[in-house]
């Protein structure tokens, strides 16, 4: 993976992070691609099937993934805390539908620290919690240059407890399984393929 221009990514270990926006799932997919240990994806059961494992193959091996379907947000959060504290998985992804209270957010942070696990909340727009370490917004972008399977996205860092903000255009390289940072046109010319 090419070095991301901000130390906020790869996501800081032992903390819980947040991501919103239409490409939040893709952001989570990129996070899943790091490491080789098991992954836990916690959702509420009413959301239906949702995640497509065949689509996830571009990022991570679905064999690593365990889905947890809880009946409501209380169960989701309780399961998340348990999973973070157990320290048995690489990454815990939680899909939230309601804003997180400060207490709940703080509990998750403490659990992540205790279990040395990374957590990532997929939140609806504008429902972030103050306890989060970083908050990202991921938007898909149309890519006029690349081929048909481009995954150009704009990642904006809108909250960071230990660093600066910023926005980057990134593209997931399926073949090499790495994240290429695409500099905005005209700012920093770079020959294609040199990003590795």
């Amino acid at each position: 993976m090419s070095r991301f221009p901000n130390p906020a990514f790869p996501l800081k270990a032992n903390r819980v992070h947040e991501v919103c926006g239409p490409a939040a799932t893709a952001f989570a997919g990129v996070c899943c691609a790091q490491g080789t240990g098991p992954l836990l994806w916690i959702t509420e059961s009413w959301r239906g099937k949702g995640l497509n494992p065949l689509g996830l193959t571009a990022f991570a091996d679905p064999r690593r993934l365990l889905m947890v379907r809880a009946k409501d947000q209380t169960d989701t959060l309780a399961s998340t805390e348990e999973a973070l504290r157990a320290g048995a998985v690489d990454l815990v992804v939680i899909e939230l539908s309601k804003p997180l209270s400060l207490t709940a957010g703080r509990r998750l942070q403490l659990a992540a620290e205790a279990g040395r696990t990374r957590g990532l909340c997929l939140i609806p727009e504008g429902m972030g919690s103050n306890a989060t370490e970083t908050r990202w917004q991921a938007m898909p972008l149309f890519d006029p240059e690349e081929g048909a399977d481009s995954t150009l996205m704009r990642w904006s860092l809108t909250k960071n407890k230990s660093g600066t903000f910023g926005a980057w255009d990134v593209r997931w390289n399926h073949a090499a399984r790495r994240l290429d940072v695409v500099s905005p046109a005209g700012q920093r010319p770079e020959p294609p393929g040199a990003a590795g």
Binding site: L65, L66, R69, D75, E82, V89
Partner: peptide, 23 residues
């Protein structure tokens, strides 16, 4: 530890709600 986690989550939300994908 992962198996223990599955058992523990199972006591709360039911063991059948922890799933995995099979091709």
């Amino acid at each position: 530890r992962l198996e223990d986690l599955i058992s523990r989550l199972g006591t709360r939300i039911g063991l059948e709600n922890i799933q995995r994908f099979l091709p």
